[in-house]
Amino acid sequence: MDGMVLVITSGKGGVGKTTTVANIGAALAALGRRVVLVDADIGLRNLDVVMGLENRIVYDIVNVMENKDLPVRKALIKDKRVESLFLLPAAQTRDKDAIKPEQMKELCEELRQEFDYVLIDCPAGIEQGFRNAVAGADLALIVTTPEVSAVRDADRIIGLVEAEGLRGPRLILNRLRPDMVKRREMMDIEDVLDILHIDLLGVVPDDEAIIISTNKGEPIAFDNNSKAGQAYRNIARRLEGEEVPFQSFDNPSFFQRLRQLVGMDK
């Protein structure tokens, strides 16, 4: 059966698209799925360093599109940690006009024959780079943070994605800070859903472990002890069709822990 092509997009830059792509990809591959990550941010190549694969690039996405004799598989970089995870890097020395939506569509069709999931890292903005990235996708995952500017841009992107004819987009709420939500100084999950009216796919807590893992080029989804890693693994399982309850990020109170201890609470 043909694989699914997902584009990860946000409108606003800096909300964590690339980290999201790397970690959902890693988590899906860890579940045994064949996954390819496509960096569509031409000229601002980043997914390779987040994945820790920057030293192994030979060919990039523009090489593949411009050279008919170069098969895609020769440009794919195999991940060091998981068997079934691959990366198609962006070109660093070209710009967004180096590829066309039509070429992107062909590439996605080819990749979906070989992979269960094709995850496309979309550039920020709503111009040509965005249109290229969404051209071959079935479904969009919208990444936002609980901030006014990011949610506003997410709303705009949801409209554009629907206009492109993609299936109902799903939301990933990134960098939630439970302590601030508790103090009512940050919008909560319900507040953002109230405004955007789309299905929630996952909530990723703000976690300094993400910065540390990105420093090392190790996706945090491989870290079994981190809440953010757990959040990405949950997203992967939901994409697989599993019903996974949303995590609670509150630290349990003394009494809750006591009740758990004596078995009064699950």
Partner: peptide
């Protein structure tokens, strides 16, 4: 109310 209500209303 905290600033989140302001954020939500402005949005």
């Amino acid at each position: 109310e905290g600033s989140k209500e302001t954020a939500k209303q402005r949005l």
